[in-house]
């Protein structure tokens, strides 16, 4: 369980990092929190010739609120910051609610939002949550041969970013620089819940739900994103059918949960059969939809309540 030999650089400047990555070619990797990459090296599942450490690149950190109310999260934002930051708690409460369920505290102090998305584990919370929030991913690379010198950037909606297990739209010379989250409105509620064998484990199944109500309590928008219930994060098709345009009654929430349970794509594994996982999805979707609806009705989007409300 010792990594194979590799070169290591720790630039402080993003362009330097991008240049180093471009120079090293296919066999280089950037190192963020190292909580997924270092285990892979130790198991010799990955053998990059060079590691480019992003931890000193200040441009990649920081949590900011945009004038329109949306949020900009640097790629090196640690899970622990999502858990504790006041801005996140107020304007992206879903992330604050879920962050304590990502791994264990020491891992959260290292692991990053950029690393989580780039790693694209189907059991990871953040890609699924960011998808539900309509986030987009900003990536950058150094100009390639034949391009004008400088930095080349593009923005992808999360939808177009995570394709499959450990498989993303990221090219070998690209680095995630930040995540943009659009503003959320009043009368919007979100909720998260997962089921894992032990606190800190990757979830056997998880669900995040979002609901927007109008003043009369009619559902304007309902969406569900699942964790570890398919090869890549995706919004569940059809959950809005029984809900939108009507008040979210218990029966309709249950119907939506049935839709999610039938429509997901969980693989059996050591923790349980496909049937068990579908069953868990149903339980978790029902619980989170109900909670999101209550929160939306209470108009308490910003700030998560300490008790289930």
């Amino acid at each position: 369980m010792k990594p194979p030999p590799f070169d290591y650089v720790a630039p402080t400047d993003l362009d330097e990092a991008l240049a180093a990555l471009a120079d090293a070619g296919e066999d280089a990797r950037v190192l963020a929190g190292g909580q997924s990459l270092i285990p892979m090296l130790n198991f010799r599942l990955a053998a990059p010739v060079k590691l480019i450490d992003l931890n000193r690149v200040s441009e990649l950190s920081g949590i900011e609120r945009r004038p329109d109310g949306g949020l900009v999260l640097g790629a090196m934002t640690r899970h622990r910051q999502l858990e504790r930051d006041a801005t996140i708690a107020e304007y992206a409460p879903l992330l604050a609610e879920a962050a304590p369920w990502i791994a264990h505290a020491p891992i959260r102090t290292r692991g990053t939002i950029g690393g989580s998305i780039a790693h694209a584990d189907p059991a990871a919370e953040l890609p699924a949550l960011l998808l539900l929030l309509g986030a987009s991913v900003r990536v950058a690379r150094a100009a390639r041969d034949g391009e004008a010198p400088g930095r080349v950037e593009r923005t992808l909606p999360l939808d177009d970013f995570c394709f499959g297990p450990f498989f993303t739209a990221l090219e070998a010379d690209e680095v995630i620089t930040r995540i943009d989250i659009p503003p959320c409105g009043p009368l919007e509620g979100t909720a998260f819940e997962e089921f894992a064998r032990r606190r800190g484990d990757y979830a056997i199944a998880g669900a995040a739900s979002r609901m927007i109500l109008d003043e009369d309590g009619t559902c304007l928008h309902a969406a569900v994103s699942l964790i570890n219930a398919g090869p890549a994060p995706a919004l569940v098709a059809g959950v809005e059918e029984p809900l939108v345009g009507r008040p979210p009654t218990e029966d309709r929430l249950a119907e939506a949960a049935d839709v999610a349970s039938a429509g997901c794509d969980p693989a059996p594994d050591m923790h349980g059969s496909e049937a068990y996982r579908r069953h868990l999805v149903r339980v978790l979707v029902l619980r989170t939809l109900a909670r999101a609806a209550r929160r939306a009705a209470a108009g308490r989007t910003p700030g998560i309540e300490t008790e289930d409300g």
């Binding site: 064998r197 923790h271 349980g272 059969s273």
Partner: peptide, 19 residues
């Protein structure tokens, strides 16, 4: 035992295919 196996015991019809 595990939650998955307990579920399978309670739902023999659709829980049996643990791998």
């Amino acid at each position: 035992l595990s939650p998955g196996k307990l579920f399978a015991l309670r739902n023999p019809a659709d829980g049996g295919e643990d791998s």
